[in-house]
Simulated scan of single mutants.
Amino acid sequence: MKASRHVLAAIPLAAVVLAAGRPLSEACLAATASVLIDLDHLGDYLLCRGGWYGLKDFFSSCNEGRLNRLYLVLHAWEWIILGLCAALAWGFWPAGMVVLGMAWHLAFDQVGNRGIVTPGFYWITRRARVGFDAWKLYRDPAKIYA
């Protein structure tokens, strides 16, 4: 899903957090985390492209599937499970809001990208099993790399 859509999706998330009676600071934290999770695309870009070639190249490389490896270290349901357990164990609401934001983002990605990526894509262990090879993670790599 494109970054602009994640920014728009953060608005109803903040509204839900506020409606649940949480303070504005926590609503903002959840919304911000739901967008900033995409920073892991920058790491993939730099590793795969071997440097920075500008914002236009960054967005086209990511959106058009031109990266040969997809690590996306933050895009993983494993972190959601671990984060949720930690937040509940410590009773630390801000951590829970970060986890909520990340889960919100992943849910939108899971639905929005279901025709593009293989089942299980949003589990880092699944991506690791195929060596983070983009050709094995896209449903139809020929379409992506065309």
Rank of each mutant, 00 (worst) to 15 (best):
A95Q: 13
N68Q: 14
G115D: 15
F58Y: 12
V35T: 07
V17N: 12
G115P: 01
A76R: 06
T125W: 05
A89H: 04
V117M: 07
L74G: 12
D44G: 01
L8G: 04
I124F: 02
H75I: 01
T125V: 09
E78W: 01
D109M: 00
W104G: 00
I144K: 06
I124Y: 05
A31Y: 03
P94E: 04
A107R: 09
A134P: 07
A9G: 03
N68A: 01
Y138N: 07
W104A: 07
R114L: 10
G65Y: 10
F92I: 14
S60R: 15
K2P: 00
A142G: 11
V17K: 05
D57I: 04
K2D: 14
F121L: 10
L39S: 11
A27V: 07
E26G: 13
V17C: 12
F92D: 14
D57C: 00
A19E: 12
D133C: 02
D38Q: 10
F92G: 09
A107H: 05
V130N: 01
L137R: 03
G83M: 02
L67W: 00
G50H: 11
I124D: 01
Y53Q: 09
F92H: 14
N63H: 07
G43I: 04
L55A: 08
W52N: 08
R114A: 14
K2C: 02
M102N: 07
F121W: 03
G54Y: 03
W52C: 08
A27I: 02
L100I: 09
I144H: 10
P141L: 12
L106I: 11
G83F: 11
Y145T: 15
Y138A: 09
V73E: 05
V99A: 09
D44F: 01
H105Q: 01
S34T: 07
E26Q: 15
A20L: 15
R49D: 00
A103E: 10
A27Q: 13
K143I: 13
K56F: 00
H41I: 01
A14H: 08
Y145W: 15
A107G: 14
A87G: 04
P23Y: 10
P94R: 13
L13D: 12
R49W: 06
R129L: 03
L70Q: 04
W79D: 09
P12W: 08
L88H: 11
M102E: 13
Y122K: 06
Y138M: 09
C85W: 10
F59Y: 12
A15E: 03
R126C: 01
L18S: 13
A15R: 12
F58A: 08
G120A: 08
A14C: 13
W79V: 08
L42D: 05
L70K: 05
S34G: 15
A31D: 03
H75T: 04
A19V: 11
A30V: 14
L84R: 11
L13K: 13
Q110H: 14
A142I: 08
D40I: 00
H75G: 01
W93I: 15
I80S: 03
T118H: 03
R129I: 00
Y138E: 08
A33F: 07
G65H: 05
C48A: 09
G50S: 03
L72W: 10
A128C: 07
W77P: 07
G91Q: 13
K2Q: 11
A27W: 04
R139I: 10
E64R: 02
W79Y: 06
A146K: 11
